[in-house]
């Protein structure tokens, strides 16, 4: 009974997240269509991945006929933040929580579900909370992708172009707010924008390869020059 109550709380909190996901996933679906994914393939892959940047990177790489190494690297690079979130999540889990429940809770991590899970009212997170949120938000994310794959071909061009930028809007909404409190991060983001644009003009490599190379180089230089403080 108590378990159901927390599951329902998760579903309730997952709904507004899912609404945003649906809209953004639609634009992801337009890109997935370029990688020749059918709508059911898009649904399955989006439901089990639930990673905006990771999926975007992989679909672009598939569309550019990239090899398996690039697919693995781009997935790792684009999703390495889940490693950090997973590490932070362990502090919110009961040390006595069974392994399978830890795995299920961890698999639910996305930027937003992680956010509400860390803010969970009790001392320890119950597995059914992120699971409930994911059942709703993940399904809407997957449905948005599938819908984008199908409708991307039907809708007029100017609407598709407009919806295309929704995903980039989501990326911006993730990276900009923390820059307000961390000027080093702000400089790193601005430099990344400029260097990425410049490299796209002069480096004859795919966008996936460029993402991998620039992420490693810029992050390493930033970590060397401006390491984060110990207490963070």
């Amino acid at each position: 009974m108590i378990k159901n109550k927390i599951l329902i709380e998760g579903i309730r909190d997952g709904l507004p997240i899912g609404a945003g996901y649906f809209a953004v996933a639609f634009s992801l679906g337009i890109i997935a269509a370029k990688a020749d994914l059918s709508s059911w393939q898009g649904f399955i892959s989006s439901f089990f991945t639930r990673a905006s940047a990771g999926e975007y990177g992989v679909y672009c790489s598939i569309a550019a006929k990239a090899g398996v190494v690039e697919i693995i690297l781009i997935t790792l690079i684009a999703n390495v933040r889940y490693l950090l979130m997973g590490a932070a999540l362990t502090q919110k889990l009961d040390p006595k929580m069974p392994l399978w429940k830890r795995v299920v809770a961890a698999c639910c991590i996305t930027d937003e579900v992680f956010g509400i899970s860390i803010a969970f009212k009790d001392k320890y997170l119950k597995m059914s909370y992120p699971l409930g949120a994911t059942l709703v938000a993940g399904t809407m994310w997957a449905a948005g992708t599938a819908f984008g794959i199908t409708a991307g071909n039907i809708l007029p061009n100017n609407i598709v172009t407009a919806l295309n930028v929704a995903l980039y809007g989501m990326f911006i909404a993730v990276i900009i707010p923390p820059c307000r409190n961390d000027s080093n991060l702000l400089y790193v983001v601005i430099i990344s924008f400029i260097v990425s644009y410049s490299c796209s003009l002069i480096l004859p490599v795919s966008s996936g390869t460029r993402t991998i190379i620039l992420t490693i180089i810029i992050s390493a230089i930033a970590a060397y020059i401006k390491p984060v403080r110990k207490d963070e």
Binding site: V80, I175, L185, F193, S196, Y197
Partner: peptide
Amino acid sequence: SFLYYVPYVTLAVMTVP
């Protein structure tokens, strides 16, 4: 520090251009 910067750089590079 490297892990801290990676997500922001990736998303920035993916957004522009």
